[in-house]
Simulated assay, not measured.
Amino acid sequence: MVKHGSSASKTRTRAKAAQSGLSYQQQLTRTTAPSTAGHTSAPPLKPAQLIGFCGHSDPHLTQMVAENIGAAWAAQGRRVLVFRHTRHPDAPIWPRRARTDGPTAVRLFEEPQPLRATDGPGALDACTLRVEHRRYDDIRNVTSATLDSVKAGYDHVLLVSKDLQPLPDLAEVYVALPVDDELPTGEERWVIDAGRRTLRTFPYDAGQSAVIWRDRLLRLMNVDWWPLAGLIVMASPRPVPTAPWRFVRAVEDHMRASGTPILGRLPRVQLGLPHAALPLPVLDKPNSRISKQLCSAADALHQALPFLEK
């Protein structure tokens, strides 16, 4: 039975006590005692916002971005849970017939634990749910019930997939992490000019380019019916031709007007082994370029979320 993050809360308090040289009880008293301004160290929580992160290239990279955005928010005093979702490794992808001699979905759940101790009222925790893949409805119901049991006590729950299987549609809003593609500036077509076949270039305006570019970025992500807060564009491993910056700015303005703003751009990140701990440059290298880019994306994403406030 899940204990609403109690284990994570205790572990986090012990880590802060070790940092400050206090006993567990002293740190617990400091955290819960009223401040001199007459209010507690943490404001009352609103219902947690469920935010899904979708990427189509590397699930570990998607998870790294989500954890760093969570770290940026935790440093600002918010309580964040990174909810990792994965299909059970021994389960078939899409069986022709579901089993009838047992449950169609099996839950293996690791309770929330701190990813990193943070100063102040903020928190950055993570948990993992492994679901045996049988039917989508069962997966969705099991995941929803697990989320309901742990999301109390958090401001934001960030849903990420640990494999290439799509997330069940449970989030209030989603963030897409596509790999950068060439910004279209025009097209070449064969035409008949003065009786001769001629290859001509027809330039796009910013609005036309935005429509085609959005389709290129999202064509493999199956998010057409999901509400998008915006896109965090990952650098491509291959060289991508660049367009004039004024044209790029105009295209991004059209993307914003059409409901899919570019929240940020990130360089290509080389991750270690699949089972190694993912880097947290937001906390470990706060002055690095990628840390500043991740923090900027976190701020832009948070600004896109006020309509979710309850």
Rank of each mutant, 00 (worst) to 15 (best):
R96L: 15
T31V: 11
S41R: 15
D253C: 02
D163Y: 11
G259S: 00
A297T: 05
H156A: 07
A276I: 02
S144N: 08
G207R: 13
V106G: 01
D119M: 06
Q49K: 12
V269Y: 13
D215N: 14
L278I: 04
Q208R: 02
F247L: 12
K151H: 04
N287W: 10
T143L: 01
A126W: 00
Q26K: 14
P239C: 06
E182N: 11
P34W: 05
K16H: 05
Y24S: 04
V80L: 03
F247G: 04
L45P: 09
L183N: 07
R30H: 11
R196K: 00
D119F: 03
L305N: 02
A243P: 13
M255D: 02
L301C: 04
L266D: 07
P92L: 13
M234I: 15
D137G: 15
Q26I: 07
A105V: 11
A152E: 05
H302D: 00
L159S: 02
A72Q: 01
T11C: 07
V80H: 00
S20G: 13
P184R: 05
L22D: 08
L183G: 00
R78P: 04
R30T: 12
L164R: 11
A194K: 02
W225R: 11
P261V: 00
S291G: 14
T36F: 14
K292R: 15
L263A: 01
